[in-house]
Design a protein around this nucleic acid. Sequence first.
DNA 1: CCACCAGAGCTC
DNA 2: AGCTCTGGTGGC
Length: 599
Amino acid sequence: MYVDVLVPGIWWHPLTYSTPQIVETGCRVVVPMGPRGGKRVGFVLAVKEKLDEKPSYEIKEVTEVLDQVPPLNEELWSLSEWISRQYLCSQSEALRLMCPPQVTKGCNVDHQDLSRQKPSRGTYQERCFYEASDEKRYARYVDIIEEAGYGLVFFPEETVARSFWDILPCHIKKKGLLWPSGGGKKGFDAWLKTRRGEVSVIVGSAGLLFAPLAPIDFILIEEEASSSYNFARYPYISLRHIAAKRAQTWGATLIFGGRMPSSRVYLLKKPQLEEKPKGQIHFVNIRKASCLELPGVTRGIPISSTLLTSSLDAVNSGKIALWILDRKGYVGEISCEECGWMMTCPECGSLCRLTRDIVVCPICGKRYEMPTVCPSCMSNFIMGRRPGIEALYRIARSLVDPAIPVHTWYKEESGKKRRTMVLNDLKDGGIIVGSRLSVTFCDDCFVGVVGWVDADAEARRPLYDARFTAFSMIWESRCRGKDPDSRNVIVQSRTPYRGWQRGLRRGWHLFWDEELAERRELGFPPFELLVEITGPLKITDDILPSLDKSGFAVYKPIADEGRLWVKTKDLKNMREALKPFFHISRSKVGFPKIRIWRD
DNA sequence: CCACCAGAGCTC
DNA sequence: AGCTCTGGTGGC
């Protein structure tokens, strides 16, 4: 007897082993692997009596059969295959993503027969609910959960999921589960409990995407356009895409909710905004605003009088003012004013930034002294450009009364302990200077003003979705959290109230209509998929002609860099063309990495 | 991807 | 000598 086994690895095909025992498809087995025969846990993909042809390799024997019945039900098993096709990855990688680590490591899972959990082809349907007020949305969600049976409820952030869980009525909580975010033993217990059929409604963040719930009557995705639904690690799956697939297989109702829709949902469903946010939005031209002088910086950051006075107003009435600048450190670039030399990392060649008098490479993390003399022209006109949060903090400190507390907030310094400290210090009002992350403070305290210090910076990033990112962040800051109706949002820009910014006042339908027209023209998502292939040059240089031959238009954004872009809808042929590069025999050369943007 | 091994660096 | 850590290796 032979079995095709999905062994953890990045090649796309299964490996064949022999076994004297009887095994079923979907069960886990332990197999020897590699030159030293290390033990791996794999899933059986297929069982066959004899081989089609003589293999060119030695066939090893299965060491141990771990399951009598498959640990995943039919829906999740075929979902892993679907994911491998949709995201051009191996099925074993999809399975690793889907299962708790205990399962892929080979821990015991109770031998339940899940074969009766057949996805019923009910009537799949979609519903949308876009509403600026968090309160109104959540109230609607509670109603939906009340009347529905089994379902998953997604929130983009763990803390928001928890606060929604807290407002749920007791009888729902009793049959429901707040999905633990950390994984570990707690996560495994939640997985087993769900699998045993002891819960019907699960609330949580992205981690519950593969909860073994069966059947599924509804799936609710709050703030469906949120970027936290795009996984940050390989394979780069989109939660919304996969959740929609799950809803379709179960014939469930899929509910999209949020403050604004994603490009794909807007294109397909043309949803309407129930009610515009009531808070005020102002646009300020920073070409005309004056800058403060900062030590070692050529061009400072302008703080308009509009932002300053309304911030002080907010602080004086005990509220918080948020000044948001999505740039870390003191300055983002170090350059010579005399000859134009820019400081790059001697190790990896990327542009360095200055943080607390120390030069840091943002890519490899190496640290250097700030140079005093330009190595190119020997002048001493070394200055910083593109000031960041630290510089903004100094500006804020110098502009407002020393009695007013000012704090910074960004990813590297955003611990739970520090957050309570900051909140406590700001309970009578104050200023937070930080990255986009600071918007979460709207949940915990009264934010009277949100100032987008350099609104153009985000929209300028060389990515097709940069304008959407900029727009959605500012839109979120208008609606999120406590008392958004009395909040002012101030957008500082060099091109105020033009282009993408106009939708901020008149509604996101205006933004999407213009943005989608342009993306359609250029063939960007959601009209086409954007496939990125990265790897060492010797691999991508092989792939390029091969894709070319299959009729794909391949772009190479940067010459002499192992990065390729393809705009296509045809993943099937793409997969065929890339297949040879994902055969196990290519191990020595290495494997490329694939990332797909869908909207 | 990931078990395995080798060699580096450290402590006793 | 014995320990942990880090990095290279290559696969049914």
